Structure formats: C-alpha cells, structure tokens
Amino acid sequence: MTDASPAARLDLVRAAIARAGGLAGRSADQITLIAVSKTHAAEAIIPLLEAGQRVFGENRVQEAEAKWPALRARFHGIELHLIGRLQSNKAEEAVALFDAIHSVDRPSLVSTLGKAMAKAGRRPDCFIQVNVGVESQKGGCPVAELPDLLERCAEAGLPVAGLMCIPPADVEPAPYFALLAKLARRHVLPGLSMGMSGDFETAVTIGATHVRVGTALFGERS
C-alpha cells in the first residue's frame, strides 16, 4: 500500500472500514475517517483533499495553526480534530481552530476549555480520553474518575460527544476497545474515537464511530 497513490490508499482504507462495518451490521457512513496529518506538510495533505477527504487530525495546536488556515482557504468543508494531548495554556487557540478535541482528560483542562468556549462563543465537540490500559506515560482519565470528569464537563458546558482511547502498544486491542464501548454505553455517550492504522478494522467491529488513521494513508513517516 505504501507505493500506492494517496487517492488509492484512501480508497483502500475506506473499503476496509466498509468491510469491517458490514461485519458488525453497520454502514460506512456511521464511521468517520480522521486522516492523521500530524508532522506532514501541506504538500502531502493536498492529494488527500483533492481525493475528497475532509476530516483531518493534528497532534499539536501550533503545527495546525501553521498549516490549516491556508488549506481551509483553498478547500471547503474541512473538519479539524485535535487528537494529541492539549496543554491548558493552548485551550483558547484550540477552541478557535478545531472542530473537535479528542484529548479532554483532567478537571483543570475541562475548566479552562469551558472558559475558552464561553469567551469564543464556539463549542467544539469534546471526547473524554480514557486511560484504558492504566499506563502512567499516557494521557487519559482513569476509568474510576470518569463519572466525576463527565459531571465537571456538564457543569463547564462542554459538549461531550463521546470517549477516546489509545490501547497499550503490541497487545491485542479488542479488550480495550470493548471496555471503552462499555463505558460509553454506561454513560449514554454516542461517540467512540478508537482505532489507528494497525487496528482500525477491529475498532470498527466493536463500535468505533471515529478512527484515526495516519500511516495507512500517508505512508511511514521518515
């Protein structure tokens, strides 16, 4: 797939999503493909835009600010998702730039985002990142603290669209995806942001509504 054109890689990923969705009795239009464009220059992103992809994910506010205003001026209908950890001091910039924030994971950030949204009059969808693998090096709210964090989101006026996770590397991801899906059902949240290039098909069969795919679309990063 790495030698294929960006448009061909996009077709292959979309077909895989449709196949996995079909196995779970879901249609492809229930699953949003987020093309993870972090570290990729505008020149690498444009072929995917020309092929019709409109939803993209970035890890850092500063990098997104440098790339996306010009691309948005040229291509209409772009939806930008922040998928990396958000520092509280970048909350205002994130609210101004992104349509969804997938890494809400702590009370201090909830409070700062609530104030930034009220000030801007703009409310991007928020996904609560859950640390399903209990990994100290990763962001994410501990499972036991999720009810309290959701309560704080409601108080701060954050529009919570669902939950997000990054399972531990090099282990079977299905149990972690299943845990996130169970938590989403328990809290009556419709969105599940889970699955990346190596495991998005598994995530789709377990209920992912948003998959974050970089390498399968852009090729290996140098």
Rank of each mutant, 00 (worst) to 15 (best):
159 P>G: 13
164 M>S: 02
153 C>N: 04
199 D>C: 13
157 G>S: 13
177 F>V: 01
147 P>T: 13
200 F>K: 01
202 T>N: 10
155 E>H: 13
146 L>D: 05
169 A>V: 14
198 G>L: 11
175 P>W: 13
201 E>N: 07
174 A>Q: 02
160 V>K: 01
189 L>A: 07
156 A>G: 02
158 L>M: 11
169 A>W: 12
148 D>A: 15
200 F>A: 02
188 V>T: 14
149 L>I: 09
165 C>Q: 04
185 R>M: 14
155 E>M: 09
173 P>G: 08
186 R>Y: 06
170 D>T: 12
180 L>W: 07
189 L>Y: 08
203 A>W: 00
199 D>F: 10
201 E>F: 06
172 E>K: 06
187 H>W: 09
196 M>L: 13
183 L>Y: 03
154 A>T: 15
205 T>K: 02
202 T>G: 06
164 M>V: 05
179 L>A: 15
164 M>D: 00
201 E>I: 10
175 P>E: 12
159 P>C: 13
181 A>P: 03
162 G>C: 06
158 L>H: 08
156 A>C: 03
178 A>V: 11
174 A>H: 01
187 H>K: 09
180 L>Y: 08
162 G>K: 04
186 R>E: 15
180 L>E: 06
181 A>Y: 01
203 A>M: 06
178 A>I: 12
158 L>Q: 05
169 A>N: 14
154 A>W: 09
154 A>E: 15
178 A>P: 05
146 L>G: 00
198 G>T: 07
171 V>T: 15
202 T>Y: 06
169 A>T: 15
170 D>Y: 13
180 L>F: 08
190 P>N: 11
182 K>I: 06
168 P>W: 12
173 P>Y: 02
155 E>R: 15
160 V>D: 04
191 G>I: 01
150 L>W: 04
177 F>A: 00
182 K>Q: 15
148 D>P: 00
201 E>A: 12
146 L>M: 06
147 P>K: 08
152 R>T: 01
198 G>K: 11
192 L>T: 00
191 G>L: 07
195 G>E: 01
162 G>D: 02
189 L>D: 06
172 E>P: 03
166 I>H: 01
192 L>C: 05
203 A>N: 05
193 S>A: 12
